[in-house]
Structure formats: C-alpha cells, structure tokens
C-alpha cells in the first residue's frame, strides 16, 4: 500500500479530539483543597494506519499522559478517542475489547516494565492469554515466532528477564506489544533508558517491524533527534497543549513556534565547528497546577506581548501542512528572514 492509498481512506486509525485529562495532586500545607493539574488540556491528534506520529515535549508537558489516556489507563475528563471509527467512550465493553486487541504499549523502563518473576515466554504470551487468542500450543508458536522477529534467541522463551541486557529486555517488551498484532503501538520513551549504540538498534527494529507488519506508532519522547528520525509527523507539546504539529522535516527544519525554535536550537550538534544559533530560553516550565493565562508559553517566550496574556492562541494552519498555536508566528518568521541573511 502506498502513502497516497492510505491518505484517501476517510477514517483514520486513531482520532483524538479535544482530549483533556486532569489529576488531583497532594494538598499543599495549610490548604484544604487538593489542587487540580490539567495535565492534558484539549488536544487533538490523528494517526493514519502504518504511520508514526511523534509526540515531543519536556517533562510536565503531558505527553506521557496523552499516551496513557489513549490506552484508557487514565480516565479522560472530556474529548473523544475514536479507534478505527469507533468512539471508545460510548462503545463500552466492545470498545474496550477493540482497544486491547488493536492498541498496545511499549514502556520506558526495560527493567520495571517486565514482571521479574515470569519467564520471557509467559510475558510475551500474556496478552494472547488475556485476549483468549488461540490455544496453548498455538500461542506458544506465536511467541516463538515473535521472539525471532524482534531478534531474540529461541531459548529466551524459558529464561527470566534478569538474564538479559537492557536492550534485549526492551526487545522483549516490544515482542509483548506486538503479540496481539496491534494496529497501533504507543511507545512511551522506548529508548530513553538505553545507551546510544543500543538505542540505534531498537529504533532500527521499530522501523523494520513497521515496514513488515504495517503497525502505526504513537512515539512519545523528549529526545528530538530520536523523534525526528522515526516519525513522519510530529506534534510538540508544552504544558498540556500542542503548540505546533506537522511533517517532521518541516517542523524541525523550519520551526514556526518560538518554543519549537528553542527546542531545536538547543539540540547539541556533534560537530565542534557547527555554528551555534541558540535561542536559549530563560526559566523553567511553570507548574501545571497554575498555568499562565493566555498562551502558556508566554512566560518564557522572547516575543511575548500583551495579547499573549489575554488570549489563548489556537492551532492554525501555517503552510506546508504545519499547524501552529502562536499569535505572532508570521511576524516572527518575517523578522527571521530579515535578520538572518545579515547574520550570515
């Protein structure tokens, strides 16, 4: 199937509309009420079959919560999540069954995400067992097949997770996620805990598996290079909102939102002679219990003006398939064009 074939199907694999998730956090000293954190505050996402959507952001941006809300591991306050055209909230038990069969998850921690008291074969076969897919021998042969697919030795099936290195354990986690032949895998920081050389192996594996099985990924990470490498489209989150979304090449090559600009210019370049054009942000991400009014990024934005405090910017198309949530993205882009040739 080619890209254009996929694009014509009117129904995306996953469509998230206006999703909001909030938590109550511990009471502050001397306070009677527990403050509410709006971890995800009205975001919309769309993933087509077989594609990868990257979700980047710093800690506290709500990117992991978004992934967990898609899997219904945390309850959503509002908004809808549609999987293959079915609204999961209204479909009840059928929706849950569809979700468990079509969506799975790969976790960050290759140590904590595997039950240390279970054998690898039982870990990888557990989703099949829970979904009551096949009988015992057929599950066993599916596990053998999938272990081979992710590049683990056949004898892994009867060994325990602690006998494997971090990278191999992450392969076990990937095998478990793929066991039910899902249409979408939510990958939450799947390589953040790994060494660079092992990171590359896992990223390569994820891409190869996508090519072979046509699985789609929601790829959540803080490392921009990693996200740029695996995702065709990327959404950037800041304090529970998407600030910019679009094709990765455009988004990283010509970022429009000042936050995306700051993120991309902060990536260290492995070349001592590379020119440094850094937009270094001041301060840190504000507490999500009490986010700034208007544009949430305004407290750290070098271009912030009065309007930013009063009015929440909405995502609007900004050309090249990119959407951006900034009142002044045009002005910022124009000022860049005039100053940059002079700088060169």
């Amino acid at each position: 199937m080619t890209e254009s074939d996929r694009a014509v199907t009117d129904r995306p694999l996953l469509e998230v509309t206006d999703l909001a998730v909030s938590f109550k956090v511990a009471r502050a000293r001397g306070s009677w009420t527990r403050p509410v954190v709006r971890a995800v505050d009205g975001i919309s996402l769309r993933i087509e079959a077989g594609e990868t959507l990257g979700l980047v952001g710093e800690s506290g941006s709500g990117k992991s919560t978004t992934g967990r809300a898609v899997l219904q591991l945390v309850p959503a306050d509002s908004g809808s999540i549609q999987l293959e055209g079915t609204d999961l909230a209204t479909a009840g038990a059928n929706g849950r069954e569809l979700l468990r069969k079509r969506v799975s998850m790969v976790f960050q921690d290759p140590f904590g995400s595997l039950n240390a008291r279970m054998k690898v074969g039982d870990i990888v076969g557990e989703p099949l067992e829970i979904q009551r897919i096949g009988d015992r021998p057929s599950r066993r042969s599916r596990v053998t097949e999938i272990l081979d697919l992710v590049g683990l030795p056949a004898d892994a099936i009867s060994r325990y997770p602690h006998e494997f290195s971090g990278g191999q354990r992450q392969r076990i986690g990937i095998a478990r996620a793929l066991a039910v032949e899902p249409a979408l895998v939510v990958c939450d920081e799947p390589v953040a805990a790994l060494d660079v050389s092992v990171q590359a192996q896992i990223l390569r594996l994820l891409k190869d598996l996508q090519r072979e099985t046509g699985v789609a990924y929601l790829f959540i990470a803080h490392d921009l290079n990693v996200v740029r490498h695996v995702s065709r489209r990327t959404a950037v989150m800041y304090l529970g909102k998407i600030v910019e979304e679009g094709p990765s090449s455009t988004l990283f090559g010509a970022p429009r939102h000042p936050y995306t600009q700051a993120l991309t210019s902060a990536i260290p370049i492995p070349d001592p002679d590379a020119p440094r054009r850094r937009l270094v942000l001041t301060g840190e991400i504000p507490s999500p219990t009490n986010p700034p009014s208007g544009c949430r990024f305004r407290t750290r934005c070098p271009y912030a003006q009065e309007r930013c405090a009063a009015e929440v910017p909405l995502l609007e198309p900004a050309g090249d398939g990119v959407s951006v949530a900034c009142h002044f993205w045009k002005e910022i882009a124009a000022s860049k064009e005039t100053t940059e040739p002079a700088a060169r």
Binding site: T52, S197, A200, Q201, L203, K207, H229
Partner: peptide, 22 residues
C-alpha cells in the same frame, strides 16, 4: 558512535546502521 548520532539527525528515510550487540 558518531555515525549513529549523525544518522539520527537525518530524516526518517535514512536507515540506521547500529553497532550490533551490547
């Protein structure tokens, strides 16, 4: 190592050639 880091910077069309093993 350098190759891996540089490949990561490139677009998603480039395949990584990771160092095998751990």
């Amino acid at each position: 190592l350098l190759q891996t880091v540089r490949d990561l910077e490139s677009a998603d069309t480039v395949d990584l050639a990771p160092i095998p093993g751990a």
